[in-house]
């Protein structure tokens, strides 16, 4: 998917100002930005819900302005807020959307069953849509986006207002969809959710793309420091000294057996550091990423936004 110089004005306000991004095939692309940065507008333009005022949007080589229906065939869209027709079962609901996407009648039941299987709603297929919980409705919306087997999924804040368990399940599901070849563009405020599985990120700032690329590229460009917490089994003082000597390590803090530090190296270099620590007898039983650095960038941009306003 290629977006170039996208312009969109809504209610007299320029929401997108020359926005551009390139989403490689098979990527999980996280769109990050403060409220009002233009994430939802971008997704709505890509989903053919809004007409772009300027710029070019190409989905798999197809220009959005020239072939809306063709683009719709290639895209599965899940808006932030949505609803379903009431008084129908889950199966009927998906059958409706499958028909609306011109899934051949002879394949309809099979497609609906397969999609329900993928989102783990098979056992609720005969339940009324209104009886589903919020998390299940979210899964149903995802199933609806998948029913015509699109190449690209556009997900607008899919984890918003979900409890931690539902959020975890959704993450697993999205990873599985990515594994089977779906390209996913996802916007979210919940940064850890994104950094866990996004291969690429794009920071939207005042309607423009402020930074984009793979997580490593963005990290390098903005010099993002990931913060880690390691719980050692003994000798925290020696571990402290060792970490201070290690490359890319900054701001080491000690709290009992737990050490926290910023790290500016790559994934590979970090793995090597952990192996070295183990080899040197500095045993640890827990490593966790406290902050990916993206949230700092996010807040930095938010501050800029507020200062500009």
């Amino acid at each position: 998917m290629e977006v170039d110089s996208l312009e969109k004005e809504l209610g007299g306000r320029r929401v997108l100002r020359g926005f551009g991004m390139t989403v490689p095939r098979g990527a999980v692309y996280g769109l990050i930005g403060a409220n009002g940065a233009g994430k939802t507008t971008t997704l709505r333009v890509l989903a053919t819900l809004l007409k772009p005022d300027g710029g070019v949007v190409k989905v798999d080589g197809v220009d959005l302005r020239e072939a809306v229906r063709e683009v719709r065939r290639k895209i599965g869209y899940m808006p932030e807020t949505f609803g379903f027709p009431l008084g129908i079962t889950v199966r009927e609901c998906l059958g409706f959307y499958a028909r609306a996407f011109e899934v051949p009648t002879r394949n309809l039941n099979g497609v609906v069953d397969d999609v329900l299987e993928v989102v783990d709603l098979s056992d609720r297929r005969d339940d009324l849509v209104e009886s589903l919980s919020k998390g299940m409705r979210q899964k149903l919306a995802l199933a609806r986006a998948l029913v015509h087997d699109p190449q690209i999924l556009l997900l607008d804040e899919p984890a918003a207002s979900l409890d931690p368990r539902a959020r975890y399940e959704l993450r697993i599901l999205l990873l599985e969809l990515n594994r089977i070849g779906k390209t996913i563009v996802i916007s979210s405020h919940i940064l850890p959710d994104l950094t866990d599985f996004c291969t690429h990120v794009g920071f939207l700032h005042r309607g423009r793309m402020a930074a984009c690329g793979t997580l490593e590229e963005v990290g390098r460009h903005w010099r993002l420091l990931r913060r880690f917490r390691v719980r050692f089994m003994a000798e925290p003082a020696r571990a402290h000294l060792r970490l201070l000597q290690a490359p890319y390590v900054e701001r080491v803090e000690v709290g009992g057996l737990v050490l926290e530090f910023d790290y500016a190296g790559t994934e590979e270099e970090f793995s090597r550091l952990l192996v070295d620590l183990g080899r040197e007898g500095l045993l640890f039983n827990r490593v966790e990423e406290v902050s990916s650095g993206l949230d700092r960038l996010f807040f930095h941009m938010l501050e800029e936004e507020e200062a500009g306003a």
Binding site: T48, L49, Y77, P79, G83, F84, A100, E102
Partner: peptide, 13 residues
């Protein structure tokens, strides 16, 4: 009202 319109118009209908 029930926010289902966008799901309908982004189909091929």
């Amino acid at each position: 009202e029930r926010n289902s319109f966008e799901l309908v118009i982004t189909t091929l209908l």
